[in-house]
């Protein structure tokens, strides 16, 4: 009797163990692609890059561990000026994108319905069907000396000779805003869509002006969308290489351009890696400060948008 009971208990325990083993296996199998992707494409290269960035070349194939590469960055004004310029240009681009994207998103989410809404949303998406390179060349066709804008201005008699509109900060800014607009509009439309119209009406009913409603009801509600849109746009701008180089020309002074030239032109992988790490640190810091200022958490914003 006792033996029988214990045997049954053993089977129960063992059976249960098999079930949990199986579900554990399923869990790991499902997680495997994500883990492989994270480890091989993100963690390993970064560890490698960090190790490279900590090497100082002291002779032919002779290296020692030091912070010398990081010192070079701080001792050379061109490097950290470019670094700061990239940061504030990206922040400006993000702010501009938000400023232009918010009314568009509000219009799509709140003032249109059904077919019009879908059409407008698609129109935001259509430019992304062509590659970024082609899109940027499109801007070059418009802005260059012999381009469309210059010719139209001459034809209208507003200017006497050809005007070069490429290769300046405004051209870079235009390109950055244009490239990242979709990534701002999509999360904003999503959050604004979820705002109940009756909240806006209740605001008016209680005597609020349109501005008070925007400030007290619409923006607080859309905050997760605003923050997640800003994070994505900021990251894209900071890490953008094509747009600043093509539209800003050789004097664009974009930090990714510096990294490129260290790796490819100068063949100085050590300094390039250090720059890469500084850029990573910078973007993380700015996103962190942004989240703190807007009192949002990364999990909340990313979860919602």
């Amino acid at each position: 009797m006792v033996g029988n009971l214990s045997k049954r208990g053993y089977i129960a325990a063992h059976g249960g163990g098999m079930v949990s083993d199986k579900s554990k296996l399923t869990f790991w199998l499902l997680m495997a692609p994500l883990l492989i992707w994270l480890v091989t494409l993100i963690v390993l290269p970064h560890v490698g890059m960090f190790l490279v960035s900590m090497r100082e070349k002291i002779g032919v194939r002779e290296y020692q561990t030091s912070f010398a590469n990081y010192e070079v960055f701080f001792n050379e004004p061109l490097y950290w000026n470019t670094f700061a310029r990239t940061a504030y240009m990206s922040i400006t681009a993000t702010a501009l994108t938000l400023g232009i994207g918010f009314p568009i998103a509000y219009y799509i989410a709140k003032l249109t319905r059904g077919r019009t809404k879908t059409t407008l949303f698609l129109m935001c998406l259509i430019p992304f069907w062509v590659s970024e390179l082609v899109r940027t060349f499109g801007w070059m066709i418009l802005l260059r000396e012999t381009g469309v804008f210059s010719n139209v201005l001459q034809y209208l008699g507003l200017v006497s000779g050809p005007v070069e509109m490429l290769y300046n900060d405004a051209a870079i800014m235009t390109g950055l805003v244009y490239t990242s607009m979709l990534f701002m509009v999509v999360p904003l439309v999503t959050t604004l869509d979820s705002l109940d119209d009756s909240l806006i009406e209740a605001g008016y009913d209680l005597g609020a002006s349109s501005f008070a409603i925007l400030r007290e009801i619409i923006i607080p509600h859309a905050m997760p969308g605003i923050v997640s849109g800003c994070i994505v746009v900021f990251m894209l701008s900071l890490g953008n290489y094509l747009t600043p180089i093509l539209l800003g020309g050789k004097d664009s002074l974009w930090f990714t351009g510096l990294i490129y030239s260290q790796f490819i032109t100068r063949f100085n992988w050590e300094l390039g890696s250090a720059f890469g790490f500084l850029l990573l640190g910078l973007s993380s810091l700015i996103v962190f400060v942004g989240l703190k200022l807007s009192r949002q958490s990364l999990t909340k914003t990313m979860g919602q948008a």
Binding site: S198, E201, Y204, G207, I217
Partner: peptide
């Protein structure tokens, strides 16, 4: 306009501001 009228409205789903 509605924000100047001396009437107030209780909405069907109340429309309390969750923020």
């Amino acid at each position: 306009p509605p924000n100047k009228r001396p009437v107030s409205m209780v909405f069907q789903h109340l429309a309390l501001f969750p923020m």
